[in-house]
Design a protein around this nucleic acid. Structure first.
Lengths: 111, 111
DNA sequence: CCGATTGTTCGACTGCTGTCGAAGTGTCAC
DNA sequence: GTGACACTTCGACAGCAGTCGAACAATCGG
């Protein structure tokens, strides 16, 4: 059984943290893939399909930012990390935000 | 007659720039006030009611970031600057985003 | 023209952020 | 236990972002 990594409670998810997290193109790409694939995913397969050029520490950092902002939930499952979008929590706290951001036109700007 | 300050065209408004702009609490406060007061406003009265503690250069900087991200339009009117939200443009490019962000619960985090 | 007002630009400073390599921690297979 | 694997933590580094004071630019009222 996996252990859930620390994350903020629904009511203490802060808009500043969420927007800062989503402002980074790499994290937004991860969130986009996660958002489209309905359900939890293994971090390794996720980032290898979306952010292939980055090093492991960098990816780990991005996952941490997403989790600590309240956007995602991460569960340690053996050697893997299973990540998922906290859809309901986000909808409760900032209705429509995820749809507006992740359903938006892709922008190709560098980070 | 006032001159419109440089701003991106609708189709080249980038999500990264918009989210980065909105990630700052000061700018979000300015946007919030602007969004609620339907119609253009004078910068001076706006910031004096919303971001009173900041210096003039800092405010000028924030207005510039908002304008260059595509969120606002600024018109130079004599010694004043008249600012307004580019509602239609934002709605065309990122439908629902402004409502989701500016209609969200206020967060009191420091910048 | 002069002074007052309003806003911008410039340079500086501080702190945060994205990135990496190296080293550490924990898990699984044998 | 040993080694391989997956990820995290720890420095370190460059670059960017928010802030300010000082100086500049433009406008308006006499």
């Amino acid at each position: 059984m996996g252990q859930r990594l620390p994350e903020p409670a629904v009511e203490s998810i802060e808009l500043t943290a969420v927007l800062s997290a989503l402002a980074d193109p790499t994290r937004r790409a991860l969130m986009g893939a996660l958002h489209r694939s309905d359900g939890p995913r293994d971090c390794a397969t996720l980032d290898r399909s979306v952010a292939s050029g980055l090093s492991a520490p960098t990816l780990s950092h991005h996952y941490k930012v997403l989790r600590e902002s309240g956007l995602t939930r991460t569960v340690a499952e053996g050697r893997s990390r299973i990540i998922s979008v906290r859809r309901d929590d986000m909808e409760e706290r900032f209705p429509g935000l995820l749809a507006a951001v992740l359903g938006a036109p892709v922008d190709n700007s560098a980070s």
